[in-house]
Computed example of a mutant assay.
Amino acid sequence: MRSRLEHYIDERAVRVWRLTALVGNGFAVLLYAAVAWGISSLRSLMWLHAVCLGSLMLLAFFTVIVLPKLRWQRWRYVIYEEEIDLQHGVVITTKTLIPMVRVQHVDVRQGPFLRRYGLASVEITTAATKHEIPAVAYEEAEQLRMQLSKLARAATEDV
């Protein structure tokens, strides 16, 4: 019997996801402001402005404050010799088991927000799809890349 998924992603992921959500919500507010300014002459729609603004603020609160922490708490992974086990999801939990013989290549990606916090994402490519372990420490991401490529190479040689 295998143990629970024991590896969490880095806790700094919460800050990165909050920053990303803040930028996305900032664009949404700017877009709304442009539309509201364009139709400001329609006084009869003031109630609609209030509803939209309230909705945007509620969405921003959820995506910036609540969701990143929940995502971090739910993200787990473990790497075995024969497979990679991933689990994530806030409302709907997704559990993925990737056989090592299916792994074609492993990439380490780092965008500007991840780089600022010393994090990177590990992207695992199979013939059918791509899987990602988001926001692990950069050094750990490089170690995972090397470990996964070595295990994948050994698994294909055994077949």
Rank of each mutant, 00 (worst) to 15 (best):
R2G: 10
S3Y: 15
R4S: 15
H7T: 08
Y8A: 14
I9K: 08
D10N: 10
D10E: 02
A13E: 00
V14E: 01
R15W: 14
W17E: 06
R18C: 05
T20G: 09
A21S: 13
A21T: 08
L22Q: 09
G24F: 03
G26A: 14
A28Y: 01
V29R: 00
L31C: 09
A33Y: 11
A34Q: 11
V35H: 02
V35N: 02
A36K: 05
S40K: 14
S40E: 13
S40A: 15
S41R: 15
L42Y: 11
L42T: 09
L42D: 13
R43K: 15
R43Y: 14
R43N: 14
S44V: 13
M46K: 09
W47Y: 11
L48W: 11
A50W: 13
V51G: 00
V51K: 02
C52R: 02
C52L: 02
L53F: 15
L53G: 12
G54E: 03
G54L: 04
L56T: 04
L58G: 15
L58A: 15
A60K: 07
F62L: 07
T63F: 12
T63G: 03
I65R: 01
I65E: 01
V66Q: 07
P68Q: 08
K69A: 10
R71V: 15
W72P: 11
W72S: 13
Q73F: 06
Q73T: 03
W75R: 13
Y77R: 03
Y77K: 04
V78Y: 04
I79Q: 02
I79F: 00
E82P: 05
E82D: 15
E83F: 11
I84Q: 01
I84N: 03
D85E: 15
D85P: 11
L86C: 04
Q87Y: 10
H88G: 07
V90N: 01
V91S: 09
V91Y: 09
T93F: 12
T93V: 15
T94P: 00
K95L: 03
K95P: 00
T96S: 11
R102F: 07
H105S: 12
D107A: 10
V108A: 14
Q110I: 00
G111M: 04
P112F: 10
P112Q: 07
P112R: 08
P112V: 12
L114I: 06
R115H: 10
G118Q: 06
L119C: 12
A120K: 01
E123W: 09
A128G: 13
T129I: 05
T129C: 00
H131Q: 01
E132H: 06
I133Q: 03
I133P: 05
I133D: 01
P134Q: 04
A135Q: 05
A135V: 02
V136D: 09
Y138P: 09
E140Q: 12
A141T: 05
A141R: 06
Q143C: 07
Q143R: 13
L144F: 09
M146A: 13
M146N: 09
L148D: 08
L148Y: 08
L148N: 07
K150W: 14
K150G: 13
L151I: 06
A152F: 07
A152H: 08
A152T: 08
A152Y: 10
A155C: 10
T156H: 14
E157D: 14
D158R: 15
V159P: 11
